[in-house]
Design a binder for these strands. Structure first.
Length: 551
RNA sequence: GUCCGGUUCGUCUAGGGGUUAGGACACCGCCCUUUCACGGCGGCAACACGGGUUCAAAUCCCGUACCGGAUACCA
């Protein structure tokens, strides 16, 4: 029988990164063995389920590139079948009616109530002491016919145990005495989770159930249902949990957006990078290697590589530099600076569009490049993402945009950086980072006089500049030197010497005026990419200087 | 309480009787750019504790501690 796995989230909020990882592992396993990866929305909790969150889950999976097979199953559509199954078990004497009035819901901290009750029982509770357990079929029928409300509970045997081999946790045994006669059907006719899951998994012909370790005890209950139904249970593989720093639960309530997959999409993560990061949380191929393409993950995936211990998703609240797991951030930066340009370009385009920095002429250039680079060439021979060598791609002088993206990506952590840190490359309307201004301009007041002079020097030395931007003033082409890195270096060095200053001071001052920020690629490339005319304007501009805080 | 898991650098992890306990991130330093970064090199830093078994234990066994999960007419 071919493998069929499923991801079965309940649509009661956005896609949690823990769920996303479960989905990923299901996906990887299915793709590895050539099986089917199915999706089932467990929307039986009508009160909490929303269409919006179903949408969000679907979006999240699409973003991660986890395409599912076959039609999406909505569990609520199967409620009738679940009821039929419960009644069948009742008729067969494998379940019984419980006429105990439904307990008043303790809305205040349900978990604590359960805990308290369990503690009160001191572990001595007899799971078989339900008074209706041994009611005669006749009396049970009579009371039911009379209209008395009842729940249907599974009749769990007195002696014995449930046992299964978990692909991750090994042999799991549980004495029947530890398992109550679980409710299959609520007194209002609503099928409960364990019954619904088993029925659906049977109907969907699921062969492997891969889910969070928090379901380990549910598995024993579900096996009892499988046995009552006379169906062989699927193989189970439980995954370790993803915890918050301090080993606490990683919850929406306590940690907010950090646990939502969409946060990473919106924060400028490259899907492949986040997927890569997620795969390495609780799983390892046993190699000294961090970067894995999707194909490699599929190829290397195995249950043996999954841990039994929980992993901590490490982040520091209130620390912008470490707002999420450092490794995730690093991995994203790694992808941004090393992935094939042809794959990065569309993401940068989307980002620039969103920031209203996009220009149509950039597109012509992207297309020319994409055609030249097979998008399947994800990884180089050494297993690392391949960097595209622009020189070899016959990028003409018109490819300013692509050249610029390739240049500035080496210092970026997220796609957002292209429109924030990198804004000055694409627009005249950019801000100056106060820290950069203070460090590189504020400390060197002489630059206020010098940099415009440097601009004059440039104007008289250089001859040509043709970047695609608007608002440039066609002036000062008195010189004959082409505006290239080599020539810029010569001119600046001479200027620095003349002033008896240090190159670093001039360079960093210019960097701040030209880009608004303190970090970036080699300054010589920055001059070139910004172009002569914009360089002149920005070196002469007083805007940044006016933001220097006088001390 | 009971049941079930777990415990290797701060974090993700490799290793599963003999290793200088390896890698990655983070952090720190040096080098490279008469510049910030990127990059290169290096540093700091771990086998929870106690008993056993053994010539030899991070590794196997037992116990303790701590952490997590589960214990619903929730999913």
């Amino acid at each position: 029988m071919s493998v069929r796995v499923r991801f079965a989230p309940s649509p009661t909020g956005y896609l949690h990164i823990g769920s996303a990882r479960s989905a990923l592992f299901n996906y990887l396993y299915a793709r590895k063995v050539g099986g089917k990866f199915l999706l089932r929305i467990e929307d039986t909790d009508l009160a909490r389920s929303t269409e919006e969150s179903t949408r969000s889950i679907l979006d999240g999976m699409e973003w991660l590139g986890l395409d599912h097979d076959e039609e999406i199953i909505f569990q609520s559509d199967n409620a009738d079948k679940h009821r039929v199954t419960a009644k069948k078990l009742l008729a067969e004497g494998k379940a019984y009616r419980d006429f105990t009035p439904k307990a008043a819901p303790t809305d205040a901290s349900v978990k604590d109530a359960i805990k308290d009750r369990a503690r009160a029982n001191q572990g001595e509770k007899n799971m078989r002491d339900n008074p209706y357990r041994n009611l005669s079929a006749q009396e049970s029928d009579t009371r039911a016919t009379a209209g008395e409300a009842f729940a249907i509970r599974l009749l769990v045997a007195e002696n014995g145990n449930t046992c299964f081999h978990d692909s991750v946790y090994g042999v799991q045994e549980r004495d029947y005495a530890e398992t109550e006669d679980l409710v299959l059907l609520r007194s209002d006719g609503h099928p409960l989770y364990n019954l619904a899951v088993v029925c659906d998994d049977i109907e969907m012909q699921i062969t492997h159930v891969i889910r969070g370790q928090d379901h380990l005890t549910n598995t024993h209950k579900q096996i009892l249902i499988y046995e009552a139904l006379g169906v062989t249970p699927p193989t189970f593989a439980h995954l370790p949990l993803i915890m918050a720093p301090g080993k606490g639960k990683l919850s929406k309530r306590k940690h907010g957006e950090i646990v939502s997959l969409t946060t990473y999409r919106d924060a400028g993560f490259v899907p492949a990078a986040f997927r890569n990061f997620l795969a390495l949380l609780g799983w390892s191929a046993g190699e000294e290697k961090e970067i894995y393409s999707l194909d490699e993950l599929i190829e290397k995936f195995s249950f043996d590589g999954i841990h039994r211990s929980n992993a901590i998703f490490n982040f520091k609240e209130n620390d912008p530099r470490h707002w999420t797991d450092d490794k995730a951030l690093w991995m994203n930066a790694e992808y941004i600076r090393t992935m094939p340009l042809a794959e990065l370009l569309p993401m940068v385009k989307a980002e620039l569009k969103a920031a209203k920095l996009w220009r149509e002429e950039y597109d012509q250039e992207s297309i020319a490049l994409s055609a030249d680079i097979p998008s399947t060439a994800l990884l180089g021979a050494d297993g690392r993402p391949e960097t595209v060598a622009l020189e070899n791609r016959q990028i003409g002088s018109h490819s300013w945009y692509i050249h610029t993206v390739d240049l500035i990506r080496s210092r970026f952590f997220t796609l957002k950086d292209f429109s924030s840190q990198g804004r000055a490359y694409f627009s005249e309307d950019f801000d100056f980072d106060p820290a950069a201004v203070a460090k590189n301009l504020g400390k060197f007041p002489e630059l206020r006089e010098w940099l415009p002079v440097l601009a004059d020097r440039f104007a008289s030395e250089f001859s040509e500049s043709s970047p695609p931007y608007e608002g440039g003033v066609a002036e000062g082409r008195g010189g004959s030197l082409p505006y290239t890195e080599e020539n810029i270096e010569t001119v600046i060095k001479a200027f620095t010497e003349e002033k008896g200053s240090k190159l670093g001071v001039i360079m960093n001052g210019a960097r701040t005026l030209l880009t608004g920020v303190a970090v970036g690629p080699s300054m010589l490339s920055v001059f070139e990419v910004i172009g002569l005319e914009r360089t002149l304007m920005r070196l002469r501009s007083q805007v940044a200087w006016n933001t220097v805080i006088e001390t």
